[in-house]
């Protein structure tokens, strides 16, 4: 079974500023709690989770005009996966950031989007110079 799960947040920050962080695939550990490293080589990225799991990913879209980033996890844990991050300019110096995960198995969509929701809540404080809270 597959599922599609989305999380979003409205930030009091211009989209351009948010995209500078979100659109850089190597900076993911700065704002996504539970990802300890991200190594980018061309269109491939490998992240390592706080649980020590290495996840190979393929970067599908990194479009700074639309401010859209998409990637697929290519680990055998997934039969299918596509995550999409959109940073949308709301024309009033605020922005809407959405992070959606489509995955089979369904549980993985919720695991990824659930963690992404927490990451989105971190974004504002990270962009304003505050550190993420440690997990233990």
């Amino acid at each position: 079974m597959r599922a599609s799960v989305r999380r979003q947040i409205r930030l009091p920050l211009p989209a351009k500023r948010v995209w500078e962080l979100v659109g850089d695939p190597s900076r993911l550990p700065e704002w996504f709690d539970g990802i300890v490293s991200a190594t980018v080589e061309g269109s491939s990225r490998t992240i390592v989770t706080g649980g020590g799991i290495a996840m190979p990913e393929q970067i599908v879209t990194n479009d700074s005009l639309q401010r859209r980033f998409q990637y697929r996890i290519t680990s055998p844990l997934m039969r299918e996966h596509l995550s999409t991050i959109d940073v949308i300019d709301l024309d009033d110096s605020t922005s809407l950031v959405s992070y959606s995960a489509d995955a089979d198995p369904a549980s993985m969509a919720l695991v990824i989007a659930g963690a992404a929701g927490a990451a989105l809540r971190n974004l504002c404080s990270v962009l304003e110079g505050n550190q993420m809270e440690p997990s233990a």
């Binding site: 709690d33 539970g34 706080g50 649980g51 799991i53 549980s107 963690a115 927490a118 997990s135 233990a136």
Partner: peptide, 17 residues
């Protein structure tokens, strides 16, 4: 939550420490 591959939660991370 139990399912936590990112090890974001204290309960899951604590046992390593």
């Amino acid at each position: 939550p139990f399912i936590d591959p990112f090890m974001r939660f204290v309960e899951n991370a604590l046992a390593q420490k």
